[in-house]
Structures are given as structure tokens and as C-alpha cells.
């Protein structure tokens, strides 16, 4: 089977385990990996005038940092495995954006790491894993 597996990657230990898990499946199935990093962003948040003026600059800095600190080292680690890897770096609501990326790439499943928030925090703020499990159009695997 030649599909794509989408991995949500935020640099955490559990995200690294999610990558390993997805890599195992991709190797076995002859599938490709799509590594996605989503920067949490709402167009309805409030900024000061100074933050508005600097937003474009900050955005470029955030993208460059994510590229060099998160995605580049991961790509290097995956380069020897022979599995084709693509990356996506986007802004938005994390779960929604991951669903969008999955659809764009025609991925067959999504793998993410568990964030390990306490029950209370998850109750209050919702969790990416929980929302994704409810909203995703394709199967989701949550790696502890």
C-alpha cells in the first residue's frame, strides 16, 4: 500500500515517539510520511498596536525557528530510513489545521503524541488529541 501517514509534530518526547511509531508503519507498508507542525494562531486574538506593526517580522521569525529547531533535525534523523518525507508548517487552530493538511495530502491516517495535560486542564481548554479524535475524517492514532 502506498499511502501517506500524517504525523503532528511539536518537538515533545511523545511527538518523537509518534514519529517512530509512524515510521515503523510507513516502512512496513511502503507509505510516505507527512510531518506537520502547526503554530497555534487565532485571527480573533487581540494585539497591541506595536505587536500589529511587528507581526509580519515575528511571523517570519517564528517560522524560521520552527524550521531550524524542529523540522530540520527531524528530517536529518529520518533521511537514512528510505521513507519519503514531506513537511508542512502552518498557522491555525491545531486540530482543524491538521485535518486540513490530512485532506490536502490524501493521508490515510493521522498519528500524534499525547500531550499529557491533567484532566482539569483538558476539561477547561480541550485537548488537541481529543478534538482531533472527534473531528478527523480519517483514523487517528494517539501515541502515549
Amino acid at each position: 500500500m502506498t499511502g501517506k501517514i500524517l504525523v503532528g509534530f511539536d518537538g515533545s518526547d511523545s511527538a518523537a515517539r509518534a514519529v517512530d511509531y509512524a515510521l515503523g508503519h510507513a516502512t512496513a507498508e511502503g507509505a510516505g510520511l507527512v510531518i506537520a507542525h502547526v503554530l497555534e494562531w487565532s485571527p480573533y486574538s487581540f494585539l497591541t498596536p506595536e505587536e500589529l506593526a511587528e507581526r509580519h517580522k515575528r511571523r517570519n521569525e517564528e517560522l524560521a525557528r520552527a524550521e531550524s529547531a524542529l523540522l530540520a533535525p527531524l528530517l536529518e534523523r529520518l533521511s537514512g530510513t528510505g521513507v519519503p518525507v514531506e513537511t508542512e508548517l502552518k498557522y491555525g487552530h491545531i486540530a482543524e489545521t491538521l485535518c486540513g493538511i490530512a485532506t490536502d495530502h490524501g493521508a490515510s491516517q493521522i498519528v500524534i503524541g499525547r500531550t499529557g495535560h491533567s484532566l482539569l486542564a483538558a476539561r477547561l481548554f480541550g485537548s488537541v488529541a481529543g478534538t482531533l479524535a472527534q473531528a478527523a475524517p480519517i483514523p487517528v492514532t494517539i501515541v502515549p
Binding site: 494562531w41 485571527p43 480573533y44 500589529l52 507581526r55 491555525g92 486540513g100
Partner: peptide, 20 residues
């Protein structure tokens, strides 16, 4: 945001400029 290009997410939105 009906006319906002999703590629521009993370930039200053119309809503944010108005709110500020």
C-alpha cells in the same frame, strides 16, 4: 475572514486591526 487567504494565517487579520 471570508476573504482572507488561509496561506496568510499568522499575519495581522482584519479583525485584529479593527479590534486594536
Amino acid at each position: 475572514g471570508d476573504y482572507s487567504d488561509p496561506k496568510d494565517a499568522g499575519e495581522v487579520s482584519h479583525f485584529q486591526a479593527l479590534a486594536t
